[in-house]
Amino acid sequence: MFGDSFFFISEAFTSLKRSGIMIIISIATIAVSLIVFGVFLLLTANLNNIAEFVTSKLEIRVYLNNSMTVSEIQNFKTEIAEMPSVKSVEFISKDIAWDVFKKSFQKLELNDLVGINPLPDSFKVSMYNGREVKKVAKYLEDKFSGYVDDVGYTGHIAERIEMLAACAKYGGLGLVVFLTLATLFIIVNTIRLTVLARNDEIEIMLLVGATKYFIRGPFIIEGFIMGVTGGGAAVSFLYFFYLLFATKIQETIPFFPLVFDKDKLNSIYAVVLLLGAVLGTLGAYISVSKSLSYENMRIRK
């Protein structure tokens, strides 16, 4: 068994060395199809990131009735905070709100214009899920009409962004499946070509009494090497491409929420490399098995 693996590996390398241009073209094809796949993974990750970022900024502002007492405000806050879809509730007193407002519009001589603070006390309610914003806002407005003056939320934008996020997530998943199949198809066929070119070789192997297992071995190792090499080339391309691309975007739009998380990026690169290895091996297995099928065991004359 051990002797066989040694033989398989040395056979695979000898064969790769002698295949010349064909093997280079095949590896390039594998690399390109994996790059397309990788670019798509990076795109999906970034879309998810943007959607998540924007969703996390969604909030409801509950403007409170001026007549509420401190304990009523406290009770109301607890009640909102206990709602399952609410992440946090922050009380913003009218004074703080006024300060923030004044800072935002320094050019206006507000103190001269308006003698008193016209803003109400309010709650800033953050949600776990942006899709709940509209429902919760309406609920608060109806249920607590006695306390609440008005409820504001970034509703329509919230809905659209949530939809975008959902599209990116589920549509992305569907596309990943589709692209994986497409990549499998391309890689299997690329390797199939290299195997077909050696059908005579397989026939001769059968004629001198090689078992199917023995014939498959070197081809499968070859497929694995081609897959890993193609995957490695794709990963290095993606790595530099993303670095360049992300840096450029960041220079232009500083706060654009791109994915810079090393773990997340590394796991994408790992997936691309793994896919190359798995599809290369699988492609070789499928191709050789086809060549070894019963019809091909006959001597063709």
Binding site: G3, D4, F7, M205, V208, G209, A210
Partner: peptide
């Protein structure tokens, strides 16, 4: 040699 390699 291939014929012999096949036979281990």
């Amino acid at each position: 040699a291939f014929a012999l390699q096949v036979m281990h």
